[in-house]
Amino acid sequence: PAGSHVQAAAMPGTITNIHVNVGDRVEVNQPVMVLEAMKMENEVVAEVAGTVASIAVAKGDMVNPGQELFSIAQ
């Protein structure tokens, strides 16, 4: 959505867990989802505080670097 902060995948991997839903309030550094890469689980945390506006992936999805994961309305 316009005016939202979009977070993208930093590395290729698989989404193994999503901790939030659209409409949930998140704070800076709050874990939002888990990205498994090279057999290591990496927590993806919110870069900004706000409300989750969209989630572009689902559990089990494979993602590439730069691919949108979710957006946060500030």
Rank of each mutant, 00 (worst) to 15 (best):
P1C: 07
P1F: 13
G3D: 14
S4C: 11
V6E: 09
Q7D: 05
Q7L: 04
A8G: 02
A8E: 09
A10L: 03
A10Q: 01
M11N: 01
M11S: 02
M11Q: 12
P12D: 06
G13Q: 07
T14L: 12
T16Y: 09
T16Q: 02
N17W: 04
I18M: 07
I18F: 04
I18C: 07
I18R: 10
I18E: 00
H19K: 11
H19T: 04
H19C: 07
N21C: 02
V22H: 09
G23L: 06
G23Q: 13
G23K: 07
D24L: 02
V26I: 10
V26M: 05
E27G: 13
V28K: 07
N29G: 04
N29S: 15
Q30E: 15
Q30I: 13
P31S: 05
P31V: 07
M33S: 06
M33W: 02
M33F: 10
M33E: 06
M33I: 05
V34N: 08
L35T: 03
L35I: 00
L35M: 04
L35V: 01
L35D: 05
M38P: 07
M38I: 02
M38R: 02
K39L: 15
M40E: 01
E41A: 11
E41I: 02
E41P: 09
N42W: 01
N42Y: 01
N42H: 10
E43K: 04
E43R: 09
V44P: 00
V45W: 09
A46Y: 05
A46C: 07
E47K: 00
V48I: 15
A49N: 06
G50R: 12
G50C: 08
T51Q: 15
A53F: 14
S54Q: 12
I55D: 06
V57R: 12
K59G: 10
K59A: 12
G60T: 12
G60K: 10
D61M: 08
D61L: 05
D61Y: 05
V63E: 07
V63Y: 11
N64P: 05
P65W: 00
E68G: 13
L69A: 05
L69Q: 13
F70Q: 10
F70G: 12
F70C: 11
F70D: 13
A73H: 14
A73F: 14
A73V: 11
Q74I: 13
